[in-house]
């Protein structure tokens, strides 16, 4: 026998990490069109979009953090903090309430950023602190009570329409564009990718690595606080112990399924949106076909595994 090796036709998986998520969405939509009654009705599409909007917003921030080889577990707690502050400041007007919740986001993000960039904690540990503490603080602020929110302006943000499309969806779409622009066109975006690609090298190149990292965590937390205040606006009440529960996992899933590697140096903004949409579609499909939530969770797990498997870096070159 010799080592003569014929060219084997290998399965071409090259484009899969990048475009697999879009393909999956397409297949799922086609399936639903044929097999799910009332799937393609405007009211259903509307509900799906409204439900996915907060996840998309949080996932955008998460994608940026993951792009720096980090992770932010505190996003759900930031949402809770933002939600808890809304009823407190609503007396001074909608603008004051929104500002208060955004400031909370800035504060949490700044603490996360300082812990990661200056103190040098690992992101998962640094953000774990506020993951635990943030929600606790939110419950204390809200005195553990569910508070109704009856401000018409705020309710408009959560349930209103603009040109027939929910305001919530407009806001999410706008934020997607802003983040995509940030990543692709700005100095900050390039620096973010460089930090994620090789932090020591970026530092030696004379870039303000710490400032970039702190900014990234602040952005992520601000996006989470936007998601938090929009959730309050949508359900018209503020419940600090429930808002944004487990959303960090949905957000990380969306980012990973969307093809952004956890190893940093790359951010796929549209992929992240698609990842969130895909997971939403999967859940919706399951519910429409009367499957147990437990089954849904297992299917989600399989999708995550496939996404990670496809996106894994080849060890040999």
């Amino acid at each position: 026998m010799t080592t003569q090796v014929a060219a084997r036709p290998a399965l071409n998986l090259k484009g899969l990490p990048q475009y697999g998520v879009y393909l999956a969405i397409l297949l799922l939509v086609l399936y639903n069109i044929f097999f799910t009654p009332y799937f393609l009705t405007w009211s259903n599409v509307r509900i799906q979009l409204i439900q996915v909007a907060p996840i998309v917003i949080v996932a955008l921030g998460m994608a940026l953090v993951i792009g720096t080889e980090g992770i932010d577990l505190s996003v759900g707690s930031v949402m809770a903090l933002a939600a808890a502050l809304i009823p407190l400041y609503l007396g001074y007007g909608v603008v004051a309430a929104i500002l208060a919740s955004l400031v909370a986001g800035v504060a949490v993000g700044f603490i996360n950023g300082v812990l990661v960039a200056r103190v040098g904690l690992q992101p998962i540990v640094a953000t774990l602190a506020l993951f635990v503490g943030g929600r606790g603080l939110a419950v204390v602020i809200s005195e553990g009570k569910l508070k109704d929110v009856r401000n018409p302006d705020l309710i408009y943000l959560g349930s209103g329409d603009l040109f027939g499309i929910p305001v919530l969806v407009w806001i999410a779409a706008a934020l997607v564009l802003v983040v995509a622009f940030l990543v692709r066109r700005t100095v900050f975006g390039r620096r973010l990718l460089a930090v994620g690609g090789n932090r020591p090298a970026t530092e030696l190149a004379g870039l303000p690595v710490k400032r970039v990292l702190i900014t990234v965590y602040v952005l992520c937390a601000v996006l989470a606080s936007i998601a938090g205040l929009l959730s309050v606006a949508r359900i018209q009440s503020s419940d600090a112990s429930a808002v944004g529960l487990l959303i960090e996992l949905s957000a990380i899933t969306a980012v990973v399924v969307g093809g952004t590697p956890l190893t940093g140096g790359k951010v796929r903004v549209l992929g992240t949106v698609a990842g969130a949409l895909l997971m939403q579609l999967v859940i919706a499909t399951m519910i429409k076909h009367n499957l147990q939530p437990s089954t849904t969770e297992m299917v989600q797990a399989v999708i995550i595994l496939i996404a990670v498997y496809v996106a894994r870096e080849r060890k040999t070159r």
Binding site: G197, N198, P200, A201
Partner: peptide
């Protein structure tokens, strides 16, 4: 490799 280039860019 560790401190110079950013291989993924």
């Amino acid at each position: 490799k560790a401190e110079g280039i950013i291989a993924g860019l």
